[in-house]
């Protein structure tokens, strides 16, 4: 037993020695000139919108020879804050965070601001310390919301599949709710969990269909992002129903294919490669402006993809099918 204690102590001492040997030797890793060190805190690998933009950003940065690190917070704000803390230790030039409302990462964002590191959000909005946000929330739902009300006219029933913990979804939902308020359309809202969003979309749809049989008026399902809409389509196919229109967002390859097959009435699409490259091109500006830059939202260019225009759309964006 005493020998074990000695061995344990030796290991602990080795660990402590290794740790403390370099203590105080931290040197700024800040790159000079046109080379930057960027830390990315991803929301979750299951969020295609932010992931595709960040992947495009990484491609841009790597072509420029910048050093980019990524961590996946797996949807956990605590992990996201930890990720920001780690990048502060690394003394990166810029931190890019995704989806989490910037307010909810306060402890991490304040740490970054204290260290003079600017933070840019993809979809999380601006707050003190997060001066720039790429907003694909409310703006993303303008066209789908308009099409929905145009398709239904002034009456019908809508199953709305929302997600209140993600800022882009909150914005999209506000946009469509504002439009629906002006009509007599009846809305049934369901909160979709993440993970499990596809299955939840499917289950909610199956339940809703039982109370909304075919031939009882105009019916539609609106998903605040692509996965719940995908779940809804699978439930409709299983039930053999073709009388319900489905609307989605984010223009994932699966969604574009569904539009092409006629299963999805519409999805809104933005070019992730262009948006990622846009963030990349603005990176020198973000770094130069630092933490005291004027807050601003960047709005991506949105495209409404429908069965009527999908062929033309794919000629312009052939990579949209993956």
């Amino acid at each position: 037993m005493r020998r074990h204690v000695k061995i344990g102590s030796a290991i602990a001492a080795a660990v402590m020695t290794t740790t403390t040997a370099a203590c105080g030797g931290a040197v700024s890793a800040k790159a000079g000139g046109d080379s930057y060190t960027v830390g990315i805190v991803r929301f979750a690998s299951s969020d295609p919108a932010s992931e595709s933009i960040l992947d495009a950003y990484v491609d841009y940065a790597e072509k420029k020879g910048w050093s980019v690190s990524s961590v996946d917070s797996q949807g956990a704000p605590d992990k996201a804050i930890s990720g920001i803390g780690n990048y502060v230790q690394k003394k990166v030039d810029l931190i890019v965070i995704a989806i989490f409302p910037s307010d909810t990462l306060a402890a991490g964002v304040r740490q970054a601001k204290g260290a003079g590191i600017p933070v840019v959000s993809v979809g999380g909005g601006t707050t003190e310390g997060v001066q720039v946000s790429l907003d694909f929330g409310r703006s993303n739902a303008k066209e789908t919301g308009k099409l929905l009300t145009d398709d239904l006219g002034n009456e019908g029933d809508v199953l709305l599949l929302g997600y209140k913990s993600g800022l882009p979804c909150v914005g999209r939902e506000q946009e469509v709710e504002d439009r629906l308020k002006a009509t007599s359309i009846h809305v049934t809202r369901k909160e979709v969990p993440i993970p499990g969003q596809v299955e939840a979309g499917s289950e909610f749809t199956r339940a809703w269909l039982t109370t909304h049989p075919a031939g009882k008026g105009k019916l539609a399902i609106w998903g605040c992002f692509g996965d719940p809409a995908r779940g809804a389509i699978s439930a409709l196919q299983a039930a053999g129903r073709k009388d319900v229109l489905v609307y989605g967002h984010d223009g994932t390859p699966a969604a574009i294919e569904a539009v092409r097959r006629g299963d999805l009435r519409a999805t809104s699409y933005f070019d992730p490669t262009a948006e990622g490259a846009r963030l990349g091109a603005l990176t020198p500006e973000f770094v130069t402006e630092g933490t005291n830059a004027k807050p601003r939202d960047l709005a991506p260019t949105m495209y409404l993809v429908t069965p009527e225009n999908v062929t033309e759309f794919l000629k312009v964006f052939p990579k949209a099918l993956g």
């Binding site: 740790t19 040997a21 931290a26 040197v27 003394k91």
Partner: peptide
Amino acid sequence: LGILVAIVAALAPTTFATSDNV
């Protein structure tokens, strides 16, 4: 854990093994 600490300390000597990072 000891090996992990030693490897990372070797790979990121200026940022990992600092009192701030501990």
